[in-house]
Amino acid sequence: MRERITRREQLAGMAFAAPYLIGVAAFLVYPLAMSLYYSFCNYSMLQPAIWIGWTNYRHLLTDHAFHTALWNTIIYAAISVPFTLALSLLLALLLNQPVRSAGIYRTIVFMPSLVPLVASALIWQWLFNADKGLINAALRPMLHTLGRRILAPLAGALGAGQATVESLRHITAPVWLGDPHWAMAAIIFISFWGVGQTVVIFLAGLQDVPRELHEAAEMDGAGAIHRFFHITLPMLSPVIFFNLIMGIIGSWQIFDVPYVMTGGGPGRSTLFYSMYIFEAAFNQLRMGPACAMAWIQLLIILFLTALAFASARKWVYYA
């Protein structure tokens, strides 16, 4: 009796999972294997693949543009991930306050995360325009006053040279997307605009923190800051962990915004990993190096996630 049910269950289970099992074979395992194979080939899709061994990987060792793309992505991920996490947590704490029309504020903060990234890129490209953009239009008078009224006199008083004082008097707004460093800063900045979903997840997490804990702590005379670090943060740690993992995976794949906004420029200062893969694969039909890079990207993401999971034992608190 028991045996028969199990067999039936086994068949039913596999039948129900069949779409995914077929999908795994067709759209996961086979492509993964092919991509690994191509990474050892010269392949343009227009001619048959030729096995060239480790050549693609060896060439990546000396490919400066690849190093640039890798480095830019590391910088982006290293800054964007922790800062978006901190910012969304702060916003969630703020939006969690019981004030009137909190719902409207939440909606406003959430909305940008729905905007298609191509459109976000265009909006911000326009805002960051060095000459006619809104950001510099606002910055210019502020910097003007700051330079003339505060920085220059201060430097003068501190005995700085004439040249320094003069340059501080003429402090100018950054050219943003025209400047290698500021372009990167701008792209990181845009990631702060789309934190809506992370904020909502944090909000849900905050609402799950038992109120009794806070009340008990307050009775014991614990201040707000103390309660945040000793109750809220530990209780939220699984949610933080989830957002961290999602952040790592997402940030390593950044493509749309820089592709549309800067195309990787100026120079290659905003060339990111996925863009370089795309460029190699579909602008130059160099499928071999593209697949090699994609596999390296996969290994990096797996490594970072594994690292996060390993560290999780130390700081993630499961009730």
Partner: peptide, 9 residues
């Protein structure tokens, strides 16, 4: 798994 790995195959 990042999308670029699948892109080509």
């Amino acid at each position: 798994i990042p999308f670029p790995v699948f892109m080509v195959p």
